[in-house]
Design a protein around this nucleic acid. Structure first.
Lengths: 224, 224
DNA sequence: TTAATTTCTTGCCATATGACAAGATTTATT
DNA sequence: AATAAATCTTGTCATATGGCAAGAAATTAA
């Protein structure tokens, strides 16, 4: 988690364009760049080769956000998305009475994206706000789109992300119907301990579909 | 809706392979085949051309299911998916106490698919059961996969379906948290009147995350 | 047509969770 | 360090929904 003197998001650009040519020296630099890259972790379980990575990684830009910054606000059209390297992020929508409903909570390794806005060019309903200072890796939709069609392994990997998001959402939804609040909270603590420990209770409660009052009581009950 | 003397699902195969060659006569047949094809409706809002349709449509097979048939049962790996032409379908999972929880209800024009099973080759948690006699258009995963990579317009269209499913699920989930049961039911009646009218109350109730008792009371309240 | 299922409604009571508000505790700001 | 703000806990009471069970209504089977 970056604190205090973190550069503003506008200063931070990855200078990786330089790396893209053929001398051995540069190849070695690229190799090193890939190995040390945070996204190496994200991509390494896919079929994507080193050569492909050298095309893909430079498209991702390291960006630092400061607490309370918005990655996206209601009404905007999403033209990029993010991988979280460090920090915590929430997304929320407003219900008819003006309450903020937490739709998702993100931590290191997660993908932050509003698929429907990005793929359908629709104004988003979601507000995506950084809860602590954050380091993210951002990619523009055009770059994503170009690589999605030109690099089959990237396409498969990204399709996997989308399906994974769908799966996670469905499991969460089913749990919200089938399990009672206490069990949902226990599940969250087990599966996402970092979030359970670092995100304010009211956002977790809303994510679980209950009030902060209820969650506080549940916590008390569990600790006994 | 097909009834009574409907042929069993095993008899029904589309004989469309025959259409794929070049004589004018055959071209005319193909044109006619495309124009009258149910899936023409599904694809016509995409960028897919007639030529591409002549490659795509023959991969979809017309299948008839009879009331209470299962398209997919828990533990199986999904190797195909369906478009619904007519009839009503439910998908459900079992919760820890053995209750059936309706995850989705499908009607004409909908896509029936368990993305996570199909794309990750995982045994599904879902049971997909036909509630009335049904006509569906089935496509095998291999065919989908081949066309997904070889026909960019098809890929975009199918990506759109996936994103659309994600969007629908998210809206439904948000509604389950933000709106009370009565409003959710009213929304269903407005957005999917065919389902509200034709699917037994207990499945609708479960889909809305409440009991049939509650939904019955809500109905009464609304009618007053 | 009659019987057997399935589906839907309704009453009674229990309970999980919400709404509101007051304090306590922790964190941020000056 | 002092003050302010945000976060968390806890009490009281209200209410939406669940669990169970009985009966009515509709659909299906014999």
């Amino acid at each position: 988690m970056v604190k205090g003197t973190a550069p503003s998001r506008h200063d931070v650009r990855c200078k990786c364009q330089d790396h893209r040519n053929k001398s051995n020296q540069k190849n070695k630099q690229m190799q090193d760049y890939i190995d040390k890259h945070f996204l190496n972790i994200v991509f390494k379980s896919s079929e994507i080769s080193k050569d492909e990575l050298s095309l893909i990684l430079p498209k991702y830009k390291r960006v630092v956000y400061q607490k309370n910054d918005y990655l996206l606000a209601e009404g905007q059209i999403e033209t990029k998305y993010w991988f979280v390297e460090s920090g915590f992020i929430r997304s929320y929508v407003m219900d008819t009475e003006g309450n903020e409903i937490t739709v998702n909570l993100y931590a290191s390794g997660d993908v932050v994206i509003d698929y429907s806005s990005m793929f359908f060019f629709l104004p988003t309903r979601e507000n995506i706000q950084v809860l602590t200072d954050c380091v993210c890796w951002e990619i523009a939709f055009e770059d994503f789109h170009e690589m999605f069609h030109s690099i089959p392994n990237y396409r498969e990997q990204q399709k996997g992300l989308l399906v994974g998001s769908y799966y996670t959402l469905k499991e969460h939804y089913i749990s919200s119907i089938a399990d009672e609040a206490k069990d949902r909270y226990i599940k969250l603590v087990k599966e996402k301990p970092a979030i359970a420990q670092n995100v304010p209770l009211k956002y977790i409660a809303s994510f679980l579909g209950i009030t902060d009052t209820s969650l506080s009581r549940i916590r008390k009950e569990i600790s006994n």
